[in-house]
Design a binder for these strands. Sequence first.
DNA 1: ACCTGAACACCGTTCAAGT
DNA 2: ACCTGAACACCGTTCAAGT
Lengths: 203, 203
Amino acid sequence: MGEEGLERVTMRRLAQELDTGPASLYVYVDNTAELHGAILDELLASVDFDPDVPPGRWRDRLVELLFSYAQVLSAHPSLARSVLLLRPSGPHYLRLIDSLLALLYAGGVPARQAAWGVDILLQMATATAAEQGARDQSVDAEGEHEALESALREASADAYPHIVRTGGELVSGAGPERFRWALQSLIDGIAMTPTPSTEAPDA
Amino acid sequence: MGEEGLERVTMRRLAQELDTGPASLYVYVDNTAELHGAILDELLASVDFDPDVPPGRWRDRLVELLFSYAQVLSAHPSLARSVLLLRPSGPHYLRLIDSLLALLYAGGVPARQAAWGVDILLQMATATAAEQGARDQSVDAEGEHEALESALREASADAYPHIVRTGGELVSGAGPERFRWALQSLIDGIAMTPTPSTEAPDA
DNA sequence: ACCTGAACACCGTTCAAGT
DNA sequence: ACCTGAACACCGTTCAAGT
């Protein structure tokens, strides 16, 4: 049950690791997606769920928690890719959701905004981890990224005036710095943007 | 060059469509990622880039533009998955970036926030499209989603107090409604959250 | 010089057969 | 009843050979 650090988790690779044929894994799991979900849940046991929230620091704790979630996932890009399409449902994943909700409530965020917010915070963290992992892993992904950067640098001012005006800012900043800011932005937005179809305040 | 509506775009499938072997495609393209990027760019020709921004409606136009981008991508889940890890660099993709920047500038968003914001807005829209597409396409993905929903409903109040307190809100709302709110939240956050290492205002 | 058949090295999943 | 070998139906990518 306890899996070790194997890159690119695959039915066949895992079966080989276990000295058996790939068919045997289907006794424990229905498909690859479910396998990935189960492994992720195992990995999430290692993320730090410190439950006490220093008052006034709920935003920082939220960012920290999502950072450590993304860090776990970055080390396993093939899992990150699955989780992006998948939504696991293991106990540690539920605990993560519960902790995120707790922090949003500590910040006075209304229930529906907190509920919907957790979803997109996890989406952002997962997508960032998947993208980062892909770039680390494959030379092609890195190449494509450079292709975009040079296309942005060499864009013509006639065709793309706002890109040219923006200049180096489009490629400025390191990954973690941009990720931190992205999380802060999203948290701020979640906290301040009312959800639809809330009954109007009675008058 | 002009590709038609083929689901699950694959080197081999595309080659067969063109009555040739898969090796032939490598004359035009270096790898699958690049192929997907090129097809996406073609598809983006159909998104509506109306350049005039009614004053005061820049947020709505931003949401509309990202909605139509996500809609194009939802119809081609295999592309959405690639683009999530990939960042294309074709002319229509650059035009989309330019249009997003234009709208953020119309709202008075500072350059670095706009630049970094475009990146995460596209990430959110792409991830949402990929997830939606996966759910439409595969029964497994739908099943996993239901597994999470029932796990959330049946969570014990002892282990997961905040999930239980949140109740139905975690699964409330239709996809497009949640997506619209998510975009609005992110836009609000981008507009109000300062980026780091901006020089302090001189005093 | 340009294209491509055939091969290599992988996948996920199923199912009949074995213990 | 439980497990699994072998097969099926796919992948991406390379490269020697053909025109």
